[in-house]
Design a binder for these strands. Structure first.
Lengths: 116, 116
DNA sequence: GCTGAGACTTGCTTTTTGCAAGTTAATTGC
DNA sequence: GCAATTAACTTGCAAAAAGCAAGTCTCAGC
């Protein structure tokens, strides 16, 4: 199958086809912070709806950004981790965080919140 | 007014509230490429629906990322340009473009397409 | 005065979101 | 050893956003 129809060959457009929504990069942020379990993502302050969390984890895995290791059967439980490809999203997160911190009033980084 | 309810104080989350969709950053990309008129954005290969283009330009202007200069009355016509705040989105676009180019098969930068 | 282009706006259908509730299978408390 | 709790999802549905086509408005050229 020719992947799902692509809008153009532009790397920005193609990256946004994978990452361009309000939740996907927040899950990736949590993974960068060391979270790995479903409940940890769900507990983040943004309170992602549980069906969207399941959907986003599946899409990220399908895109090769995340992989999951089954750490028990019955019931099946997975630990999610960034792949190499996923870890390379770091610069995007950093750029977003830097811009947000500088241009949106009232935002605080994790470090700033921890220091308070 | 307390802005529209914010999901958290995280700069990444707040940036995604403004920029986290499939089209907004593509319009910003076009602005970085020097485009300034409605028809130029509409002509990009991704073919943004015209009502979404009007909506995104209005939101970007409301967010202080873009400003518009009226270059004629009757009918009113505007040229759109990035503000300082908008120009500082450069690192985000570059990070997205770099990741997309390296990790999504078949993508080509503008320079690569131009060289062909 | 007729045609066409540019910049939007409107209406409507489809898709995605967001919320609540339900399910399944351990695990903990008593 | 049995009810209550917890973790990780799944399902159903209403509301919002996206996507598409068509319409409007104004001026420019012929």
């Amino acid at each position: 199958m020719p992947a799902k129809s692509r809008r153009s060959v532009c790397p920005v457009a193609c990256a946004l086809d994978l990452l361009g929504d309000r939740w996907t990069l927040l899950v990736v942020r949590d993974l960068f912070w060391g979270k790995s379990r479903y409940g940890e993502f769900a507990a983040s302050p943004e309170k992602i709806p549980t069906n969207l969390l399941a959907d986003r984890l599946a899409r990220l895995e399908a895109a090769g950004i995340v992989d999951s290791e089954r750490y028990q059967d019955h019931p099946p439980r997975h630990a999610y981790r960034l792949t190499k490809r996923g870890r390379e999203l770091g610069p995007i997160l950093r750029a977003l965080a830097g811009w947000g911190r500088r241009h949106i009033a009232g935002t605080r980084t994790r470090d700033e919140v921890a220091a308070a």
